[in-house]
Simulated assay, not measured.
Amino acid sequence: MVVSESESISLSDGRTLAFATYGDRDGTPLVFHHGTPGSSHLGALLSEPARTRGVRVIAPSRPGYGRSDPNPNGTFETWAEDCRALVDALGLESFAVAGFSGGGPYALAVAAHHADRISDIGVVGAPVPAHDGGPFGPLVRFPRLLGVAFRVGAVVARLRGDRVVVDQLTDRSVDDETARIVGRDFRVGLSSGPSGAVRESRALAANWSLSLPDGDVTVWHGTDDENAPIGPVRTTYEDRPAATLREVDDDHLGSLWSVRDEVVDLAD
């Protein structure tokens, strides 16, 4: 069962936080974090394995994406509080958390700040602290130009279709439904403007610290990932005994597709 982004809650400061639910609505909860840029629609990639495993995938759109109001002063920590407000509103006493790509550090922040509520955690293709600007290079130093780049990307995706988005994330051949999900995720993420993508891209390129919870963390990362190269990932996690790095013989989006069953199993 796939449910579009049609639900939302109001946060304490008046902002709206939108989310979508996939899989089994009565299942064990997993909060899934989309990439940068992106939206709740990426959670649809987990819909089928979630349905068959009895898992309820809750996929929020972070501030500035889709129908979620922007937070100009947003940080990893403020997102952790937003996410807690969401699970409180849904009545969840405990939940697993996962994040893909730029959503990985945000998922880790939730787990670190609310360890008492977390049952398991995993990240896929997630960046680690770096100072080279990531996939957006020097543009992160110029937020207006970065915003223009995202707007142009959204226009190109709308004109040329879903495959142009997929091609930025993987070299593998994907079916039409997967391409539709990925393309829609990108377009919806930027539908209200590039504010969320700009803010997150700059945050991930800045001097930030990797938040890790006390419990075990599974890190899946593609050996052919060009968006977040595996070298720095290996270095970052080699001295962190609570983190298990599982290298995947695939690229960025391909890794998520390859381990989607295992990601859903975090909720077991």
Rank of each mutant, 00 (worst) to 15 (best):
L11K: 04
A112H: 08
A242E: 12
I118E: 00
F19K: 07
G254H: 04
R202V: 10
L253V: 09
G196K: 05
P143K: 07
S201M: 10
S40H: 06
G66W: 01
T235Q: 15
R62L: 09
L190I: 09
L169R: 02
V31N: 01
A206C: 01
A154I: 07
A157F: 12
P229K: 05
P60D: 07
P194E: 03
R141E: 13
F142D: 11
F100W: 13
A205S: 11
R163K: 12
E77R: 15
R62Q: 03
S68V: 07
G54L: 07
S195L: 08
G27R: 02
G74F: 01
L146F: 09
A154C: 05
S192E: 11
S12L: 11
E238A: 14
F95M: 04
V248D: 02
L42S: 08
D13S: 03
P105S: 09
F76K: 00
A130I: 05
S61P: 05
R163P: 00
D69S: 15
E247Q: 14
D120E: 10
H252W: 14
D120N: 15
G102Y: 06
Y237H: 08
M1E: 04
G91T: 02
D175H: 11
A98D: 00
F136N: 14
T16V: 14
V128K: 07
A197Q: 01
V198G: 02
D162L: 04
L42Y: 06
D176R: 15
F142G: 00
T75A: 09
R160T: 06
T236W: 03
L210I: 02
D69I: 02
A80L: 02
L46Y: 10
P138H: 12
W208M: 03
L30C: 04
P49C: 04
S39T: 08
A115Q: 15
G161F: 12
G102W: 03
H34S: 09
V174G: 07
G193N: 10
H113N: 14
S10H: 06
P138E: 13
A130E: 13
S39V: 08
S119Y: 08
S47M: 03
P241E: 15
P37Y: 09
S39H: 06
G134D: 08
T236K: 11
G102A: 11
A109Q: 01
G103M: 06
R240T: 15
V148R: 06
I121V: 15
F76G: 03
S10A: 13
G66K: 11
F136E: 05
L253E: 03
D261P: 00
R25P: 14
P129D: 06
R151D: 12
S211L: 15
V264Q: 00
T170A: 13
I9Q: 04
